[in-house]
Amino acid sequence: MTTEKWIIIFGAAIATFIPRIIPMLFFKNKEIPPSLTKWLSFIPVTIFSALVFSDLVFWENNLSFNPLVNLKIIPSLIVFFIAYKTKNIFISMIIGIVAIALMLLVF
């Protein structure tokens, strides 16, 4: 394997570690201001929504809301419903995976 690949590995290690560690070291001995805590309380919901929707509506790199083209849409609606009803991540995932596999088989 070339040195170039090792440079990529160690460079990526540093690049991924910096955003993970900086807030920890910065705030470990400081009180976080209440307004920042409040702002941060929205981060989980906004991050996961951004992650989900920026994947969900793209099919083969094209924006598509057509459930017969973008085969992720129907399984995802099912997963939303199951997750809301059961509050169980594992069951929701399994049903979602079965649903997308069925969609790929049928279409």
Partner: peptide
């Protein structure tokens, strides 16, 4: 994606969270 959807649903604990989730999703796209 399925895991993140379930995690997202877990995080929607109020009406404000729901509105913010929708806004974030649209902005992300």
């Amino acid at each position: 994606v399925a895991m993140f959807i379930a995690m997202l649903v877990e995080q929607v604990v109020s009406k404000v969270h729901l509105i913010v989730a929708i806004i974030s999703g649209i902005l992300a796209i």
